[in-house]
Design a protein around this nucleic acid. Sequence first.
DNA 1: TGCCCGATTAACT
DNA 2: GTTAATCGGGCAA
Length: 189
Amino acid sequence: MAKRLNQAFFRRSVHEVAPDLIGAMLLFDGVGGRIVEVEAYHHTDPAAHSFRGATSRNAVMFGPPGYAYVYRSYGIHWCVNFVCEPKGSASAVLIRAIEPTTGLVVMRRRRGVADLRLLCSGPGRVCEALRITQAHNGLALDEPPFALFARTGEVEVIAGPRIGITKAVEKPWRYGLKGSRFLSKPFKA
DNA sequence: TGCCCGATTAACT
DNA sequence: GTTAATCGGGCAA
């Protein structure tokens, strides 16, 4: 069995944690799969929610590492982040896509699509498939309903510009599993 | 208080 | 390629 990721795993630079999450297994209530795409955000980064300081929405980002920050996107979707670094640095990794492996029947029902590649390929899709909502904001990542396991084997991680932002667009802080069919968008070669 | 816009997605043309 | 859906945060007034 793969090693469980504990809070110490997240108590590092967000730019170390983010690529290390590629290939890791994410389960929520026993449903999920392998993480294939993430993005890193830091409080010194104009594109980060924490850039302008703590608010009620982003309060979890300013708390200790190893917790989930969940926010509403475009008034419609939920997106989940993993808080990193020592408490107060307000950095987090956005989970953008996973390769579905566990609980496929449940995820297909929740998403209303059968195509594996459309189940979890995008931050909003991941949360809908795993049924992560505002109710889970602030939960610890090393306790149920979360379960995270370190990748087993080597993986080839590729980096590139982040998606859907208008500030600091040039920063190559999107990380993905090279060649994965489950990315929300392909990485430029 | 009002207005603009976003770490998105799906359904259009 | 374009656009609607939908709402809270952030900033101007």
